[in-house]
Amino acid sequence: MNNYSTIFEAVGGVEGIRKIVEAFYPKVLKNPLIGPLFPADIDPVMERQTLFLSQFFGGPSLYSDQHGHPMMRARHLPFPITPERAEAWLGCMRAALAETDLPDELQELILVRLSGPAHHFINQP
């Protein structure tokens, strides 16, 4: 991350997060394993994800300010999340990050940081 103290700063703040999210969700919607879990109107999901990732990666508490405590595991419990779906989600994020000009080390750091929560949400065998 070089001269940055947070991933949030290293990716360019909210606008950098938004670019990642905008590259990510078209891949999610096209993915046969996870696309059907998402609503057709993906814009509100993208906005919440931008707020959440900004906060998650060390930025301001935008998500909590608007939506309360993230409680991400509880929010994901209604959806059948298998190990394969967690990996598909991470694969879509990897592909989205590959489209950015972020350094490879930063892309890997982001994926490592997201892999814990992605696997924590698994609620189906």
Rank of each mutant, 00 (worst) to 15 (best):
Phe56Pro: 03
Leu51Gln: 08
His119Pro: 10
Asn3Leu: 09
Leu51Trp: 06
Ile7Cys: 04
Ala95Phe: 02
Gln49Phe: 13
Pro70Asn: 08
Pro80Gln: 11
Pro78Ser: 06
Thr6Lys: 00
Val45Leu: 09
Tyr63Phe: 02
Asn3Cys: 08
Ile81Glu: 04
Gln55Trp: 02
Leu53Lys: 01
Leu90Pro: 03
Ala95Pro: 00
Asp104Leu: 06
Leu53Asn: 01
Pro80Met: 10
Pro70Trp: 01
Phe57Asp: 00
Leu29Asn: 12
Glu87Ile: 10
Ala118Phe: 10
Pro78Ile: 03
Glu9Asn: 07
Ala86Val: 12
Ala96Lys: 01
Leu77Asn: 08
Leu90Asp: 02
Met72Trp: 05
Asn3Glu: 12
Pro60Ile: 07
Asn123Phe: 04
Pro125Cys: 09
Gln124Tyr: 08
Ser54Met: 07
Gln49Lys: 11
Ser115Gln: 15
Leu106Ser: 04
Glu15Met: 10
Glu99Trp: 10
Ile110Asp: 00
Met93Lys: 08
Ala86Tyr: 13
Tyr63Glu: 00
Ala98Phe: 06
Ile20Met: 13
Met72His: 09
Arg75Thr: 08
Val45Arg: 03
Gly16Glu: 02
Ser5Asn: 09
Trp89His: 13
His69Cys: 13
Ile34Cys: 14
Pro125Gly: 10
Leu109Trp: 00
Ile34Tyr: 09
Phe38Pro: 08
Pro125Thr: 08
Phe79Gln: 03
Ala10Glu: 05
Thr100Glu: 00
Pro60Gly: 09
Gly58Ile: 07
Phe8Lys: 06
Cys92Thr: 01
Asn3Phe: 05
Leu97Met: 14
Val14Ser: 08
Ala96Pro: 00
Ser64Met: 11
Ile122Ala: 05
Gly35Tyr: 09
Ile42Ala: 04
Glu22Thr: 04
Thr82Pro: 02
Asp104Ile: 05
Val45Gln: 11
Ile81Trp: 08
Gly12Thr: 04
Gln66Ile: 07
Phe24Ile: 12
Gln66Gly: 12
Gly68Ser: 06
Glu15Lys: 13
Leu97Cys: 11
Pro60Ser: 11
Met72Ile: 15
Ser5Lys: 05
Phe121His: 15
Phe57Tyr: 01
Met1Lys: 06
Ile81Thr: 07
Met71Gly: 12
Arg73Leu: 15
Gln66His: 06
Asp65Ser: 15
Ala40Ser: 12
Leu53Ser: 01
Tyr63Gly: 00
Arg75Pro: 06
Thr6Gln: 02
Pro44Ala: 07
